[in-house]
Design a protein around this nucleic acid. Structure first.
Lengths: 121, 121
DNA sequence: TTGACTTATCGTATATCTACGATAAGCGAT
DNA sequence: ATCGCTTATCGTAGATATACGATAAGTCAA
């Protein structure tokens, strides 16, 4: 009864959610950090760094690749991964636009609604 | 055998993944967009806008709240939600730092790695 | 070809997510 | 107290995600 319903939402929202979903796991954040500091890394090197089995790392890499965040290059028996910086930048941009933090003008509108009384988290 | 393993990763990566996870659904992106254009919205208004049942919307709101992205205010029988802009801004900042797009100077470094040969998606 | 190495995929078990109806719980008015 | 309204929670079903071992598939060297 819980079929996904993603199709009922605007395409841009689905796209942004997919981007967020690709980053919604510590291992994938770690992979991206690793790819950022060492320009290009092969799967085995990532396996050495993370507390996960090779199959799991490969699965996470596939998820990142599916989201379009990676470039991959086969060199010999290895596969070298690097960040698709352009795609990431593009996603970040629409991300910030949607989140409304593109320009941080917390100068005028610090009060969200002046007619608000009690407020709790 | 697939217990979560999040605890084996650095706290910041877990935190960022949680933030991304909160945004990893089109409905939650839509809710944030809605909260951005109308400063403050109650649950029922969101239900009217989205193709989801009230229980589902409430669940999504809970997820966003749990991630710390919302302020909520009870007024009468209603509950009014607004964005926790400060938290969102803070998350976005560390987000961009991690993704390496904190300053989008795609002026000099358009070439990710000049020593790469063939490259395919 | 065989062997050593690297990575992707398969199969599988468990956990979490998604979605809903039903119901509970709260407020305000009558 | 009762009714109408609003929202949260419960219970549940199905779909996805997570993690691993085992295995397949590929490259390079001998």
């Amino acid at each position: 009864m819980a079929t996904t319903k993603h199709a009922l939402f605007p395409e841009e929202q689905v796209s942004l959610a997919a981007f967020a979903g690709a980053l919604a796991h510590p291992a994938r954040i770690a992979i991206i950090s690793l790819l950022q500091e060492r320009k290009e890394v092969c799967c085995g090197d990532i396996v050495k760094e993370l507390p996960l089995a090779q199959a799991t790392v490969s699965q996470h890499l596939k998820a990142l690749d599916k989201a379009g965040l990676l470039h991959l290059r086969e060199c010999g028996p290895k596969v070298c991964y690097s960040l698709n910086c352009e795609a990431i930048r593009s996603f970040c941009h629409s991300f910030q636009c949607t989140l409304g933090t593109d320009q941080a003008d917390h100068s005028a509108e610090l009060e969200p609604a002046a007619d608000c009384a009690n407020r709790r988290s």
